[in-house]
Each structure stands twice: as structure tokens, then as C-alpha cells.
């Protein structure tokens, strides 16, 4: 599905060059559930953002679904992730002014999907996540677990091929976290490719493969 070759990313501070990522080589196939682990500052989130095309890199090649991402223009890149990638965040990042229903609907609005079709898609996912009763509530009226559920529903609504999750359970208690990981595992079984960043060995165990990062480099495969 995607392939990273000799990816470097750095920032210049004065005369020093600090490497965030160094010579990353990584291939992820469709249907995998990969966990990225590592201490703070090891470059996990940076790597995830590069995979998600939210962030660029300084050197190397990135192929995604037979497209050379490093050669694409900003606009093409964004239409690519718009089509194939869903994001889940540690802090949920729901829009406070929108209801649960509207938050989930947002990605569809930007894909020119007809109103009736949108309604059906959102209804489906609400049903599936068993949050139909919460659809008219605002994010602040929900618990953390419920908010993350909405966040995942929003990430999945446009039927992406790849789900990127940056510490999805970081803000949740263990029971809520478990539920989310169970959900991920179900999704993976249904064919969804998932890459998650996590601190927890337990969460990493839900995945099929673990990548350890240290100081911007992949430690072992």
C-alpha cells in the first residue's frame, strides 16, 4: 500500500541541523495493523504525519497507492489523503460548535456528496457505533470515550483505506481505551489498514506489527 524509502526530515537551528527522522525505510501492505512505538521525541508523530501527508520531508521517496507522493503538488496530495486516509487524534479534535451528527458529516461536505446520501451514511455509522441517541449532543456533553468514538466515526465516514491514529487512547481511562482498541481490531479484521502511534505495549499487541523508533531511526523490525 505504501512504501517509504530513505526518508529524512530535519530542522535547522542556527548552524546545527537536528534530525527528526533519519533514513526511514518502511513498507506497509494493505490489511496490516501497525503500531509505532518509542519514547517521547523519537519522531513517532512526525512519521505518522508524513505518512498522512500532513507534513513534508526533506529527502527520500514516498509511494502511496502507486503514486509518488514526493512528486505531487500540494493540491494533488491533499486530494489523495482526502480520498484514502482517515485521522484519529489523541485529543479527539472535534469541532465544539458542531453536534455529533454534524461533526461526523463534515468530511462528506467537502466531497460533494448529496444530502440524502450523506444522511444515510451518517445514520449507518451512528447505528454501527451505537451512538444514535447522542447525535444531537455537542462534544462537550460527551465523555472522553464517546468523543473518541465520534472522532473515529468521523475518520471512517468517507470510507478511507488507511486509518492513522495518534495515541487514540492517550486521554482515555483503561476501560474506554480497551473498547477503542477492540473496535480497531474489528475494523482491521474487516480489511482496514491501520497505523497507530502508541506508548502502551498492551495496545501495540492488538496490532500485527510493531515499529520501534529511537532518535528518528527505526530500531528493529
Amino acid at each position: 500500500m505504501l512504501e517509504l524509502k530513505h526518508i529524512y526530515k530535519w530542522v535547522n537551528t542556527g548552524n546545527n541541523r537536528t534530525f527528526l527522522l533519519k533514513d526511514i525505510n518502511l513498507t506497509i501492505n494493505e490489511g496490516e495493523f501497525v503500531s509505532i512505538m518509542g519514547p517521547s521525541g523519537s519522531g513517532k508523530s512526525t512519521l505518522l504525519n508524513i505518512i498522512g501527508m500532513l507534513d513534508g520531508f526533506n529527502e527520500g521517496e514516498y509511494n502511496f497507492m502507486h503514486e509518488s507522493v514526493h512528486q505531487l503538488k500540494e493540491k494533488q496530495r491533499s486530494s489523495l489523503y482526502k480520498q484514502y486516509i482517515g485521522f484519529v487524534f489523541q485529543a479527539y479534535h472535534l469541532i465544539d460548535e458542531l453536534t455529533v451528527y454534524e461533526n461526523i458529516e463534515t468530511p462528506l461536505l467537502y466531497q460533494d456528496i448529496k444530502s440524502s446520501e450523506r444522511k444515510a451514511m451518517v445514520a449507518d455509522i451512528l447505528d454501527r457505533f451505537q451512538i444514535v441517541g447522542k447525535k444531537d449532543l455537542f462534544p462537550t456533553q460527551l465523555s472522553g470515550g464517546q468523543q473518541q468514538l465520534v472522532g473515529i466515526a468521523r475518520a471512517l465516514i468517507a470510507r478511507p483505506k488507511l486509518l492513522l491514529a495518534d495515541e487514540p487512547t492517550g486521554n482515555l481511562n483503561s476501560k474506554q481505551g480497551e473498547e477503542i482498541m477492540e473496535l480497531f481490531s474489528t475494523l482491521n479484521k474487516e480489511g482496514m489498514t491501520i497505523i497507530q502511534v502508541t506508548h502502551s505495549e498492551k495496545n501495540a499487541d492488538y496490532g500485527s506489527r510493531v515499529i520501534h523508533l529511537l532518535d528518528g531511526m527505526i530500531e528493529k523490525k
Partner: peptide
């Protein structure tokens, strides 16, 4: 940011 990530132009 969220809207852009959700695909907003």
C-alpha cells in the same frame, strides 16, 4: 485544521 484534515479546500 480539522476541517482541512477532513478534506476541506
Amino acid at each position: 485544521s480539522i476541517r482541512k484534515i477532513a478534506g476541506a479546500e
